[in-house]
Computed example of a mutant assay.
Amino acid sequence: MTHVTVDGRDAPGQRGRVKVWDPLVRIFHWSLVGLFAFSFLTGDEWKKAHILSGYTIAGLIAFRILWGLVGTHHARFSSFIYAPSTILAFLRDSLTFRAKRYLGHNPAGGAMVILLLLMIAGIATTGYMMTTDAYWGIEWVEETHETLVYATIGLIVLHVAGVVLASVEHRENLVRAMVTGWKRAE
């Protein structure tokens, strides 16, 4: 069994495990989950809180893009952006429970990260536009904002389904890994 060390010292209770998700990735992930849900629930009902939540989400997205360029190995986009053919092959293998296990994001998970970042950036952008004089009350901006929100919810459902599928297929609790940062080394 692999023995993992942290900063050259033994990692107590982590024999056979490796730290994959750094604290900033995990804080980003769960903050985005909470703020997206909060923003969805407040919508037209609590405008000021909704707008503040949207600005916070925009800041989180900006941080994640930066961290995707300069962050830790598994946080970097270069570690999880794959060719479309690789993504499709991975999805096919997943549906037959023959997918390769990845320590970081698998090809489908990496694609989902990019899609969600783009969609939520679009939501934040159209949300901001709706607060400006130039776009106040412009129907296509409001419709685009709402369409992006519901499309993102669809992606979230697919993301959760993918996490469940991969957790079952590889006998690994990926939700716990995103809370603790640790995954099985092998």
Rank of each mutant, 00 (worst) to 15 (best):
His145Ala: 00
Ala151Phe: 12
Thr147Glu: 05
Trp140Ser: 10
Thr131Met: 03
Trp67Pro: 04
His29Val: 06
Ile156Glu: 11
His29Ala: 09
Ile153His: 09
Thr86Arg: 15
Val149Ser: 10
Ser53Arg: 07
Gly127Glu: 00
Leu155Ser: 15
Val113Arg: 08
Ala134Gln: 12
Trp30Gln: 07
Tyr82Asp: 09
His50Met: 10
Ile57Cys: 01
Ser53Pro: 01
Lys48Glu: 14
Ser79Asp: 13
Tyr128His: 09
Leu24His: 06
Ser79Val: 09
Val18Cys: 04
Thr56His: 02
Pro107Glu: 01
Ala83Leu: 15
Ala108Gln: 05
Met129Val: 03
Glu146Tyr: 09
Arg15Gln: 07
Tyr55Ala: 09
Lys100Glu: 13
Gly104His: 01
Gly71Tyr: 02
Glu142Met: 09
Lys19Leu: 14
Ala121Glu: 11
Gly104Phe: 02
Arg76Ile: 10
Ile81Asp: 00
Asp22Arg: 01
Ser39Leu: 11
Tyr82Met: 09
Thr86Asn: 11
Gly104Lys: 05
Ala62Asn: 04
Leu95Gln: 13
His74Ile: 02
Pro84Asp: 06
Asp22Ala: 00
Ile87Gly: 10
Tyr128Glu: 04
Ala49Phe: 15
Val18Asp: 06
His29Glu: 12
Trp136Ser: 09
Gly43Ser: 15
Ser53Val: 06
Val20Trp: 02
Thr131Trp: 05
Ser78His: 06
Ile120Asp: 03
Arg76Ala: 03
Leu103Tyr: 00
His74Thr: 05
Thr144His: 00
Trp46Thr: 11
Phe90Asp: 04
His29Arg: 09
Thr96Asp: 13
Ala58Arg: 06
Ile27Gln: 07
Trp67Ile: 12
Gly154Trp: 01
Ile65Leu: 13
Phe80Tyr: 15
Arg92Val: 12
Pro23Ser: 05
